[in-house]
């Protein structure tokens, strides 16, 4: 059973990202959107932990662009890709 975790809040305002990374299973994926993409900002303390996820790390393309964040280890996805991503995992868990 694999889960796609979705986080939309900044990692610098609460502990959702840290909790999620602690619970993330070996086959789970993580999609960052909204202010959560600040976790990918080069130089942030959160980058190293996220990069260990390799190909299981995704970010919503429009949110990266809106915040001028590039050269990340995350796969950028648009909305059609988000839909397909949700089907590549058995379930979707949003950290509301």
């Amino acid at each position: 059973m694999s889960t796609l975790h979705v986080i939309s809040r900044s990692p610098f305002g609460d502990n959702r990202l840290a909790s999620c990374l602690r619970l993330l299973g070996p086959h789970d994926g993580l999609l960052l959107c909204g202010d959560a993409v600040y976790a990918l900002n080069p130089g942030s303390v959160t980058v190293a932990g996220l990069n260990t996820l390799g190909p299981r790390l995704y970010a919503l393309a429009e949110d990266l662009e809106a915040r001028a964040i590039s050269d990340t280890g995350a796969t950028a996805v648009d909305y059609p890709a988000f839909v397909e991503l949700s089907l590549n995992y058995d379930k979707v868990n949003s950290w509301l």
């Binding site: 979705v6 939309s8 809040r9 909204g34 949700s86 089907l87 379930k91 979707v92 949003s94 509301l96």
Partner: peptide, 10 residues
């Protein structure tokens, strides 16, 4: 449904 997707927060 095959998938439930929730949206909330910011």
């Amino acid at each position: 449904a095959d998938r439930l997707v929730c949206f909330g927060g910011d």
